[in-house]
Simulated assay, not measured.
Amino acid sequence: MILEVAILPVIAGKNDEFEAAFRQASAIISSMKGYISHELQTCLEDSNKYLLLVRWETLEDHTQGFRGSAEYQEWRQLLHHFYDPFPVVEHYTLTQTYN
């Protein structure tokens, strides 16, 4: 499993619009091959900053499958105009777990 991590800096005053668009976009990403789950969290210290976590079966499911798809173009149209600056996206793999 791969964890995609993105900090999303949303333009001030656009939170409600962004969250509504994200609800629409969620249906797009959740339909993609290799998708496992995703969540969106709001930063407590800065309400214009969101954390997006997406779990994929493989890195290629995200970088080639999703980003290379027509569905990604729809995702882009719904969300990318809300960001300033554009988010950095990184991918992680599990090293260890602790309880």
Rank of each mutant, 00 (worst) to 15 (best):
residue 2 I to V: 15
residue 3 L to T: 04
residue 4 E to C: 09
residue 7 I to Y: 07
residue 8 L to I: 07
residue 9 P to G: 15
residue 11 I to R: 10
residue 11 I to C: 03
residue 12 A to Y: 06
residue 15 N to W: 00
residue 17 E to S: 15
residue 17 E to D: 15
residue 18 F to C: 01
residue 21 A to H: 06
residue 22 F to P: 00
residue 23 R to V: 12
residue 24 Q to I: 07
residue 25 A to E: 12
residue 25 A to K: 14
residue 25 A to N: 14
residue 26 S to Y: 00
residue 27 A to Y: 15
residue 28 I to Y: 08
residue 32 M to W: 12
residue 36 I to F: 02
residue 39 E to Q: 12
residue 44 L to I: 05
residue 48 N to T: 15
residue 48 N to Q: 12
residue 50 Y to M: 02
residue 50 Y to G: 04
residue 52 L to Y: 06
residue 52 L to I: 05
residue 55 R to I: 09
residue 56 W to Y: 04
residue 57 E to W: 02
residue 59 L to E: 07
residue 59 L to C: 04
residue 67 R to F: 01
residue 67 R to M: 10
residue 67 R to T: 05
residue 70 A to K: 12
residue 70 A to T: 06
residue 70 A to C: 04
residue 72 Y to D: 11
residue 73 Q to F: 01
residue 74 E to H: 08
residue 74 E to N: 12
residue 77 Q to P: 02
residue 77 Q to Y: 07
residue 78 L to V: 06
residue 78 L to M: 07
residue 79 L to R: 04
residue 80 H to E: 15
residue 80 H to P: 02
residue 84 D to F: 00
residue 85 P to M: 13
residue 86 F to D: 09
residue 87 P to H: 00
residue 88 V to H: 15
residue 90 E to P: 01
residue 94 L to P: 12
residue 95 T to C: 10
residue 95 T to Y: 10
residue 98 Y to W: 11
